[in-house]
Design a protein around this nucleic acid. Structure first.
Lengths: 167, 167
DNA sequence: TTATAGTTTCAAAAATTATTGAAAGTTATA
DNA sequence: TATAACTTTCAATAATTTTTGAAACTATAA
């Protein structure tokens, strides 16, 4: 496998993974491109490399900035904006986990909480609904706390968590 | 909030969560419906409750069975098939985590492994590609091992893992 | 067998989501 | 303040994904 092939494969693998995570293809591909780039890139360069339109590039770069994964860099004496991504995988994982918790897990926990607090009218169906949503609420809360704890141990959390559990 | 409203809210919350996980809406809603049902349901009942077509119901129930989340039940003297889902949240989480690992994480690990093993031709770009894909490969491998360890501690893994890490 | 009660399949339609591209907007500098 | 260089917006279009529904299929019982 040559460099170009490997690079394309990396970008497309990351791109399709993104879809699975609720991140769109272009957004994931831009991040992938920046992740293996040796220097910050301009909108033009991203468009050229990924063969996507200016509008698409602009919108998705903004979203990556929103997520806190991509940073804008300005070069002295140049009008163009240069973009670069977080290069440290641990930090990248931390940011993604945190955003996902905030955007997805926490709202669900809140809803489960609301549902599980409905008035128990004594019927079998209501009892089952309360019981099962409570169980999910507890699971989600615990899993989220675990994730939260993990992502706040900035350095090497995965390895240290692993060691603790495995042994 | 009354029972019916709570029930609808639960089904739609679970449905939209599913989308985020690469599971389609109907599939997630069927699972949600079964999860709070006090008895196994037939195709007819599912169609009726969720207002979806017969074909849609059939295909998505099959997928849930494939995932190992839903089981078919036959009643003596009846031709109809009844469906029920795993009711224990811990076990449900275990199955979902395991399936996601198998379907998504493991193939990506394999691809990252392939990409990071390309021949180093000494150029800066190749070196960066190798370095970054290796780093991702290591992270994914470790995270996956952690998940694997966790899901194989059938009982109460989340809580016990949490206790170990928090203290 | 044949009728009946059920399930599955799949091409077409509908719904959703992503992408384009050109116009509008912004900002730096001459 | 005018122009050039660049970015953003957004309605229209394209691509993708989901859903439908009717025909094909399967199994049981009379």
């Amino acid at each position: 496998m040559e460099f170009q092939e490997a690079k394309d494969k990396f970008i497309s693998t990351w791109g399709s993974l993104g879809t699975l995570w609720g991140i769109n293809k272009a957004m994931a591909q831009i991040q992938a491109l920046l992740f293996i780039s040796t220097k910050p890139l301009t909108t033009e360069e991203i468009m050229e490399e990924l063969q996507i339109s200016r509008g698409n590039t602009s919108m998705n770069v903004r979203q990556l900035i929103d997520w806190g994964i991509v940073k804008k860099e300005l070069k002295a004496g140049e009008r163009k904006e240069y973009f670069s991504t977080e290069k440290d995988v641990q930090e990248l994982a931390r940011i993604i986990a945190e955003e996902r918790s905030r955007r997805e897990i926490q709202p669900v926990i809140k809803t489960l909480q609301e549902i599980s607090s409905i008035k128990d009218d004594g019927t079998k169906n209501t009892k089952e609904l309360i019981k099962q949503t409570k169980a999910l609420h507890d699971l989600a809360t615990t899993a989220n706390a675990l994730l939260d704890k993990a992502i706040n141990h900035k350095q090497n959390w995965v390895s240290s968590a692993l060691i603790k559990i495995i042994k």
